[in-house]
Amino acid sequence: MINQIIDWLTDPAHWSGTEGIVHRLVQHLEYSAISLVIAALIALPLGMYIGHTGKGTFLIAGIANSFRALPSLGLLTLIVLVMSGSLPFSIAYLLPTVIVLVLLAIPPILTNTYAGIQNVDAEARDAAYGMGMTGGQVLTQVETPCALPLIISGIRSAALQIIATATVAAYVSLGGLGRFVIDGLAQQDFPQMAAGAVLVAVLALLVDLVLIAVQRFVVSRGLTGRYARTTASSDVIEAESVNTLSTAR
């Protein structure tokens, strides 16, 4: 069986053309990137605003809990069904899917951004204001850089969520790597199905690795604990565990 999967993956015919791996991979990345960017554009400023001002914290608890309970497949089928009839064919499946992906990616980014900003050392924040920083300067020069580890792990969760759900979206006729799984299933072609699963897993892993590299690059060494590390309080651990490892796939 393993050999059949390797055979399927190494067959050049499976790599080219509009049904080929390269094209599917590009599609998958396209949907994912668009959705992640839109979700970040919404969730980052909102999370920063709520964390900085302390206004609207009810949104955080509400969104974090209720969105996690929403089944992604249910949301996908419902929104595609509702919207596809009234949309031109070219985006009939893409737009509803992107909406669902964005909806599912917002909570991890939002809650982690909020938690990151909120968990910034109260003394550092106090000192920042005391030295004459304006609210905006405190947010951009102190709170956000200090919150980056949590913010980026939120983005990582969101990216994994998006890639996983984009795979499922092949069920509602979207392109991308999920097609191999869905088509393989429909055609009783198990090697194709398993190869699709392998490709999706590898993609998810690579994207996560890239984001880890980004995290290494943008987060200050003063925060990463590669030097002296202060022990985190249980509250922070609680928030971290919940927020970074959250979300269904």
Partner: peptide, 17 residues
Amino acid sequence: GLLYTIPSLALFVFMPL
């Protein structure tokens, strides 16, 4: 963490294998 990155549909497909 590695396990967690594998999308669920892919993991379901791997299981019989």
